[in-house]
Design a protein around this nucleic acid. Structure first.
Lengths: 210, 210
DNA sequence: ACGCAAAGTTGCAGGCTCTGCAAGTTTGTA
DNA sequence: TACAAACTTGCAGAGCCTGCAACTTTGCGT
């Protein structure tokens, strides 16, 4: 029942292709690696590569619908009455914990993105669809129109921005503690209206966190 | 001295290529148009196309560094003591006014982006560099480390998100008034900590705005 | 076990994108 | 007018990506 041999093999092939693409791109640059090389490293034909990824860049940038859809699932699972930003915070927290588990892949990819910004853009594009879904869910929870009211889209864009920034800072700080702590710090700022951390008293506890 | 014939011709060719790319992509979809067709419509050879744009997508997505660098200039021009989010708000306001001026081009491109999200991603990638610069400036103003402190990156990411969301909602509402009004609405939410607009009293004035 | 249907892999043909190079053409200047 | 720099162009070629048809593997009912 659960997971047939077929499913497992497909997942394994996908992982092998993604991993090979990432490693080779790291070594020779995204343009230095060919689909042929990736396919060979993963033990399949070049043609099969395109059955798994729609482009070479997709394989390298790692368009992983898994993490994103889990983010949506986590949000949906939050209690109905919870304030939107709190629900987003909780879902984001769960996401960071999953991300932290595969920190090495994340790091490798991050280094690549720093060297080749075009890849980062491609990666970010993968989140566009999830963003739409998150906005829908927040709109449903607040009873607002996702197209005409600004709040749902703004809250979601802000939350995703917080995740992105938290990951970046976490790496720059050489990962001293849990990623979730940095995320909490970010949401703390958001709930306080992003007041200047130096001018405002409310900022004292924040800077003390680091 | 000023602008030789050479310069003007180049600028004209670039504009013709960009315009043809946008129009053809609108008619036949980004994949339905070939570089050959764009070049022919602009009256140059296909090879010349690549002397102006590094890829077909670049020509269609219209990587325009102008707007972004103006955003940075506006931010730098704000008074030194101004709270960061207020300065970002003011700079964003100026940006929206410039954007509103070329609303038709924006609309056409926006329609394309809606139909083909990959283009939007490409376009967004152009803003990555400006985002870094904005973060630097906010860090300078607050005396924080742009890499280790979360506030500057968070404030900038949030502000850019606000601009993006404001534009989207403005179009969905069929542009009833100034884009800047929608932007103000977004920043209002941000300064109030993104509290649930239904639960909080502070939300009353916001929903009244629309 | 057996065999059939669905799913997955592969090779091939072919069109398109993009690059480097060398030759030709146009523009700015002395 | 002559010359140099800048720009355009054609050509060759590598690589990306797709549709198609044949082949192999897996899942499942009998």
């Amino acid at each position: 029942m659960s997971e047939g041999l077929r499913e497992r093999k497909k997942a394994e092939t996908r992982r092998a292709l993604s991993s090979a693409a990432l490693r080779l791109a790291d070594e020779m640059g995204p343009d230095g690696v060919t689909v042929e090389a990736i396919a060979e490293a993963a033990g399949v034909s070049p043609r099969t590569f395109f059955n798994y990824f729609s482009s070479k860049e997709d394989a390298i940038a790692g368009i992983a619908p898994a993490h994103s859809s889990e983010l949506l699932a986590d949000l949906v699972a939050r209690p109905e009455g919870e304030p939107p930003l709190e629900a987003l915070h909780a879902a984001a927290r769960a996401a960071t914990e999953r991300l932290e588990a595969s920190a090495d892949d994340l790091m490798r990819r991050r280094n690549l993105f720093q060297r080749y910004p075009a890849l980062a853009a491609r990666h970010a594009a993968g989140y566009a669809e999830v963003e739409r879904n998150l906005v829908e869910e927040i709109a449903r929870r607040t009873g607002l129109d996702p197209n005409l009211d600004i709040y749902p889209a703004l809250a979601v864009a802000t939350a995703l921005g917080a995740i992105r920034v938290a990951i970046a800072v976490w790496y720059e700080r050489d990962r001293p503690g849990p990623l979730a702590d940095v995320l909490d710090e970010a949401f703390e700022h958001l709930t306080h209206g992003l007041t200047d951390p130096l001018a405002a008293d409310s900022g004292a506890s924040l800077s003390a966190a680091y």
